[in-house]
């Protein structure tokens, strides 16, 4: 039933496309950081499902708070002249690609149905659900 979340994604995309909401120009930059946070949360969530540490409440709260905080940080950073925006892009970039690689490894391990020492090693060390 993995298809259902993706159906949700497409419905959301369709609604967003039809609503045609435009973020005010001066907020686009912060929203793009929030977008990265959301992306990071999603990959973190997928990974935690794979490793069995998934908590729905963590995921949903993490999704929105990460977005809000990332956007807020970028905004504050602009206000005080520190490019926290770039820091967020950098940090989220690393986390996203890290999570993607973990997801990929887990999928490969699952496919070959063999014990992979690195797949489930210390799952709780990762941030739960992003």
């Amino acid at each position: 039933m993995w298809i259902i979340p993706f159906i949700g994604l497409f419905i959301g995309a369709a609604i967003g496309y039809l609503l045609n909401i435009e973020i005010p120009a001066h907020l686009v930059k912060y929203f793009s950081v929030a977008f990265l946070a959301a992306l990071d949360t999603i990959f973190g969530g997928i990974k935690s499902i794979q490793v069995g540490t998934f908590e729905p409440v963590f995921l949903i709260t993490g999704f929105f708070t990460n977005m809000a905080v990332a956007g807020l940080f970028a905004y504050i950073g602009d206000g005080i002249g520190v490019d926290l925006y770039l820091a967020a892009v950098f940090a989220f970039g690393i986390r996203i690609f890290g999570n993607i690689s973990k997801i990929r490894r887990n999928l490969i391990c699952k496919y070959y149905k063999k014990e992979c020492s690195r797949c489930n090693a210390n799952p709780c060390e990762d941030d739960k659900n992003g």
């Binding site: 979340p5 949700g8 609604i15 967003g16 435009e22 929203f31 999603i42 969530g45 729905p56 409440v57």
Partner: peptide, 28 residues
């Protein structure tokens, strides 16, 4: 359907809205 899928569906739904909004905003 378990809780995992429901949660993931919810956030992916939200993410869909976010990604298209970001797209629209970026274009303009």
């Amino acid at each position: 359907m378990d809780k995992q899928k429901i949660a993931l569906t919810i956030i992916l739904f939200c993410f869909g809205i976010i990604i298209t909004t970001q797209y629209h905003s970026h274009v303009s």
